[in-house]
Amino acid sequence: MTVESRQWLKYFSPTQSRRPAVLKQLLENHLTTSALFWGKAYDLLEYIALPISTANFEAELALLCEQGFLQKTAQGMLLTKKGTKVVQVDLMNHAQFGMPAFFHGFDWKNWEKMFLLMVQVASELSYQNSNYFVIANDLRTQYRFKEWLKKYGKERLLSEVQTSLAEFLSQEDPKLATLFCEQLTGHNQLGKTRNQLATIYDYSLTDLEVLWLDMCSRYAQFLLTKGQALSELVHFYKRNSLLSESNQKTYELFLAQKKLTEIAKIRGLKLGTIQEHLLNAALLLADFPFAQVLSSKLTSELKSFYGETPILEWDFKTLQATLPDISFFEYRLYQIERIIQDGVRT
């Protein structure tokens, strides 16, 4: 989806100037260790793969600078006072993603097709009609759905779709639930496009898109939590781990207490790559065992070396002069651990 220029402002800060580059990489799901590190430091990781188009990112930011909402710096851009005021107003008046982090590892485009298909089929089933144009015409979605239907049957589909939708929507703002339901297609009922809803109800297209994607994703999460048969359909589209397949393999070997050099050999990768995989795991997972790499002796040496220096102002070269045997991997891992423990003061 595309956003109106001003809506970019909520992702910016008056103090963290590297945000533009980091944000773009995260939105585009281009997860380098560096992007993840700065994303963690700036608390931006929940925006990984958020469905917002970055096609006009640079041009829109340039416009926001011109309008005085953002200010260019040597490292990137900062939110101005004027920009901060806009963010406060916009957060109140525009739709926001309630669970942005869910989009990481979530194939929302295909889930959307599956969701619309299962609602349509359930609706037609309730009217015992089998003669209709199918909303999702791609083979894979249809095939997956048919397999599910063979396994669980029509009655289960109808009952789970009806009850889960009713329960999920009963917890939502009823007006927003209506906007959501207006987009569903079923027996003798065609959904409205977001363009049409924007015209009828005087909503902005961006808000409608955010509302739809937000509710679609939260409904998927709702199904996963319920753990009924429909959750199997969500599992096709939601990755279990936040790590990529390759990172996950490395991490599993690490958890099995293998040495890093051993992991590199098993995986046929360079040691540096293995270290990057582990840094990614430390940045993305909540329970990374830092102590497996950082001994308590090294941790206390690092703690006393940096003292009260703000984490993002640490410098590896100066550290090396005092602790010549320390690797960048160890240094960075400690830095990540401290960010998680203390947060970042900027």
């Binding site: 359930a122 309730s126 779709v161 207006e182 109800y201």
Partner: peptide
Amino acid sequence: KESLKTSDYQKILAKLFKDY
């Protein structure tokens, strides 16, 4: 042009599913 009413989503579900 229409305004959203709070009970509308229930009506849509009732239309979508025959015995809702």
